[in-house]
Design a binder for these strands. Structure first.
Lengths: 237, 237
DNA sequence: ACCTGAACACCGTTCAAGT
DNA sequence: ACCTGAACACCGTTCAAGT
């Protein structure tokens, strides 16, 4: 015989607010929160009926866009904390820290990153950070239009890499293990005569498989080397 | 009174094969196919009960991995057709064509790109293309380990950007329009004194919003500029 | 005004029943 | 051996009913 569960859920009416919903939703999107944002989980987290959320957000998309905005805001705050002096003359350091801050902010909620990384909200937090990014690139030496193009490339690359990592991280454990085994086992056992370079670099590649941060740092630094070359060219012209 | 639908579905047993399932699944993943891969749609496409597919694939993940493999294979074939001479001494042209071929192959099936871009199958098609990529970077002047790191960065960036574009493309029409409006309307109306550079470059940014290929070309060429700088440094050392 | 709960059209997956 | 179809535990969303 099992212990009877008391009427713990206390079917009394709960009062929701936009803020309490967003807070609960952010918790659900985190890895500890189970990493899945659904109405039923959200209802449980809030102690309310799942459909009660519809009184505050028209649909799931509206909820997701609101969460995106909070996350972008947090990312820019993180960047400001890391570099309190703001964009100094070292454009490269500032872009690196900013890209990594936005990425970190999203990766703290992988479920949101998957849903929202490709979205544009045109919120104040977003527009201000875009102006700042273009300004830094322009001051570094790029013409305005080229600075804008460069901002777009850098941001999309950062968000895309973030979504990519987040998508993998919320896969079933079994699917993740399947991929890890592919790297560790198959790539480690390739015949040396047919795959000489792969055979030689397999240990490093297997290492990188677990190191998303390392891969992103690699992509970012290579990209910024390219930006530096572009600035050099613009200065000469 | 409506016309009666004849027993068109002919509830006779259908014989499925691994190949016919994969073919039908690829069709469903394409934009014309509705852009969603589900068992019920797959059953309808095959004229069979949705659950019949389980006799040929253990679960959806197995199906997705098989589709991924076909897509990677097709991408490498596309690259070979575009550059029949293989990786000549122009490493940059070859990497550009290869990255764009893999991307094009995935973007022909956005639903698959979203599900599979971050996966590793270690299939023959995959391992051979990896060896080839590392070889090209090594011949261009990078030490083996650095060439492997560079391959990983380039491939992940390409797949991430592909997944990012695919994820947006399979969104509801309403969600896409919401984002487009954010760019076109809000970004176009920002006050010039507060957002001087954004105001100036808004037309170009709105243009880029619709131009995924353009943004990817921009990211890729900047990244490859960075690789060129890296090769230069390696040669001097 | 806002929360509840039944209902609906979907998902992936399991399993007993058919052929 | 392999396809069918009912069933289950989930999704997002709608709507009438409660308070």
């Amino acid at each position: 015989m099992e212990a009877r569960v008391a009427e713990q859920s206390s079917k009394r009416r709960v009062t929701l607010t936009r803020e309490s919903i967003l807070e609960a939703a952010l918790r659900l999107c985190s890895p500890e929160g189970g990493g899945q944002l659904t109405f039923s989980r959200l209802g449980k987290e809030l102690g309310a009926d799942p459909t009660a959320v519809y009184r505050h957000f028209r649909d799931k998309d509206e909820l997701v866009l609101a969460l995106t905005d909070l996350t972008v805001q947090e990312g820019m705050e993180l960047s400001r904390q890391a570099l309190p002096d703001g964009p100094s003359d070292d454009w490269r350091a500032w872009l690196t820290v900013t890209a990594q801050s936005v990425r970190a902010s999203y990766l703290a909620r992988p479920a949101l990153a998957v849903l929202a990384a490709a979205r544009t909200t045109a919120s104040p937090a977003e527009t201000h950070s875009v102006e700042q990014l273009i300004t830094v690139l322009h001051r570094a030496g790029l013409p305005v239009i080229e600075a804008a193009e460069c901002y777009r490339a850098l941001l999309d690359m950062t968000l895309a890499m973030t979504q990519y990592t987040a998508a993998f991280s919320i896969l079933d454990r079994s699917a993740q293990e399947k991929d890890e085994a592919a790297w560790a086992v198959k790539y480690g056992m390739l015949p040396e005569d047919e795959f000489p370079l792969l055979h030689q670099s397999a240990p490093r590649l297997t290492e990188l498989f677990r190191d998303d941060d390392g891969v992103f740092a690699l992509v970012l630094t290579t990209f910024l080397d390219g930006v530096a070359a572009r600035i050099e060219r613009a200065r000469k012209a």
